[in-house]
Amino acid sequence: MKSMNHHHQQSPPDHDDLGQEPINWTTWLNDNGPKLLLYARQQCRRDSDAEDILQEALVQLVRAVESGDFRGQPAQWVSYAYTAIRHRSMDRGRHHDVRKNYEEKLQTIMEEEDHNSMPWLSCAADDEYLRDGVEKLLKQIPAEFSEVIVLKIWGERTFQQIADILGAPLATVSSRYRYGLQALRKLLENNPIEL
């Protein structure tokens, strides 16, 4: 069955209403998309969910910026997008939690396989042999630790910004980062990879 949604055609404006520089979203997406997708992957069980959530977060950001509802500076857009990704993945996680039948269990197995199939990280050719090992370690430590590590190292957020994104105290965030690195170190001691 086909459904139709009508809305009037209008070409997008090249400038915002305040006469400021035009926003080049393509450039912004190229610069920030990979790190946002990495965070979405860290938050979701499935890559397909991560991609959906990233898209929804981007649309939310663009609407907030273009409508003037978002009062912050462009430098804060990334943090806004991280927060949107987090909230949406939490909502999706709750949705997943309420379904616990056989099909769900079967799907979980498929999700785990999917989860492990797409690379989270890229690196120079010399380090390629390390990539799998590092990704596996990141997936083994508690999610609350890896979340902070992803935001700090690859999201290039400060601890204060991470605290704002997670809605957690600054001390908690820095502790999680430290514990996360320690957990990685212990895993490395038990399963050494040649550096």
Partner: peptide
């Protein structure tokens, strides 16, 4: 060690999809 890596780039289809969504 972690800083030797960077986030994996988006696939072309993901990139196009997000550009269209924006």
């Amino acid at each position: 060690l972690l800083k030797r890596f960077s986030p994996a780039t988006m696939s072309l289809s993901t990139q196009i999809r997000n550009q269209q969504a924006i």
